[in-house]
Amino acid sequence: MNREALHFAVRNGKLLVGLAVLLPLLALALLGPALAEGDPNAYVGTPAQAPSGEYWFGTTMFGQDVFAQFVYGLRVTFLVGLLGGGLAALIGMAVGFTAGYRGGLVDEVLNMLTNIVLVLPALAVLLVVNAYLGVRSVSVQALFIGLTSWPWAARAIRAQTFSLRSRDFVDLARLSGVRTWKIITREIAPNMSSYLFMTFILLFGGSVLIAASLDFIGLGPTQGVSLGLMLNNAARWSALHLGMWWWFIPPGAGITVIVGALYVMNVGLDEVFNPRLREL
């Protein structure tokens, strides 16, 4: 199965396009500090410069290097998305699979928990928690985002699991003496792998956006820079009206391109995993 999936994966245009967009951005984020040395928030040049050979993405209103900010911001954005989205996806999957497969009382208890977290005004809780605990690191921010944004994922996964559980192939696996967790991971989860990936993408995007909101109200990492913070700074200083497109387009495009590329990859993965779609 795996070798075959790979065979189709390397021939899948959508997947390759998605990767072709995503990997350079990831590389840029990882190698960023080498390319743009120094503090990305330092005032290095003439304010409000358009892109040039010296400052590839121009400078901000205050003379900060937009490219340096973009590169560092990209890194933070990936990190928040990965940690926050990943944690939320893990919790969502654990809760969703257990509730959907077990059913009965377990389902009811987990469902209640899910609904409680779901109706909590997540952003408000994050504000309070951040304000009290003084969160000042990216990973702690991601942790809080992850802990509050899983419920809808759990509900979606539970519903999918519920419908897959009643399929005969699950019964057949039970008749083959396969243990419950193995049925979940090897029979049910692969059937919704593209769905799970999609969930992760949405959680990833959600984390990025929540982080941007927190950054905006000054509850983000103190000394940080992120694409969200760049966007909000640009908005705050009316970059749009001033025609400083180089200030908001890179971070905006960065977020859009990352989430968009993930989405295209998701469609591609769907085709790789689903043999019916392969042939069309």
Binding site: D168, F169, D171, L172, S176, G177, P190, P275
Partner: peptide, 29 residues
């Protein structure tokens, strides 16, 4: 004691090859 069900199409995990139903027996037994 073993069983065979009504809908043969639903007894196979659609994303895997049919060999898998045999493979499962091999792994477990």
């Amino acid at each position: 004691v073993q069983g065979v069900f009504q809908d043969p199409f639903s007894c196979y995990n659609p994303i895997f090859k049919v060999d898998r139903v045999l493979q499962m027996i091999r792994e477990e037994y």
